[in-house]
């Protein structure tokens, strides 16, 4: 995986086919969580690499929890706009939620299309940089919710676990290290998405101050 860099009027990251499949899959899953029709046609192919196949299995479990209206991941995407005022919160929800959902779904679908283009790249046109960064935020909010990240301390604890694990993982199975493999793989996916988003937004393209 290679971070985003500027090339002509695009931001371009290097992702091999398996990495693109995994990220496209979670992007589509978040779309489903928001009520989208399936992206693309047919089932996503399972990557050949064993480590990515594990991630895919955990992503399938992510789907299963996605139908509850009070799903905490959905509440991260469509938060309460007025926790202390029921009337204001309800009106806001009634007036805005469908538009917010539709906008998020459109962005996710566009990112899914970017990731489905052939080649070992993820190319984002400069005028789609902020929309792509916003879609990545939505995906990270959902993964963070599944990982139980509710505070800066939770995020730091996850980082510590991953750092410890990645040392041991070269030689051992995660279960032998006493780590929850689901937390580990989802955590590594979360870290990769964070790293990609950081590299994308730190480029000085796609903004009003260009």
């Amino acid at each position: 995986m290679r971070a985003f860099v500027v090339r002509d009027h695009e931001a371009v990251a290097g992702l091999d086919e398996d990495e693109r499949l995994v990220i496209a899959r979670i992007v589509a899953d978040v779309g489903l969580l928001l009520g989208a029709e399936s992206f693309g046609h047919g089932e996503a192919r399972t990557p050949e690499r064993d480590d990515l196949a594990s991630v895919m299995r955990f992503l399938e479990r992510l789907d299963d929890a996605a139908v509850e209206p009070d799903d905490p991941a959905l509440l991260r995407l469509l938060p309460n706009a007025a926790p202390d005022d029921r009337e204001v919160a309800d009106e806001f929800r009634r007036l805005t939620h469908q538009d917010i959902r539709d906008g998020k779904i459109d962005r996710l679908r566009r990112v899914w299309e970017q990731l489905s283009a052939p080649g070992d790249e993820w190319a984002v046109p400069s005028d789609e940089v902020m929309a792509t960064a916003a879609a990545l935020t939505d995906v990270r909010l959902v993964v963070a919710s599944r990982l139980g990240i509710e505070s800066d301390e939770d995020a730091e604890a996850l980082h510590r676990d991953i750092a410890e694990a990645s040392a041991g993982l070269r030689t051992a199975d995660p279960e032998d290290l006493g780590l929850d493999p689901e937390r580990l793989w989802l955590g590594m996916l979360y870290d990769a998405l964070t790293w990609l988003q950081e590299s994308l937004v730190s480029l000085r393209i796609g903004g009003s101050d260009e």
């Binding site: 309460n80 706009a81 007025a82 202390d84 806001f92 805005t96 998020k104 916003a134």
Partner: peptide
Amino acid sequence: MEVDVQAMHSYGLWATLQ
């Protein structure tokens, strides 16, 4: 403020109005 909060939620930020 409803318009601004809607925009922040669209960007994935946690915003409220009061």
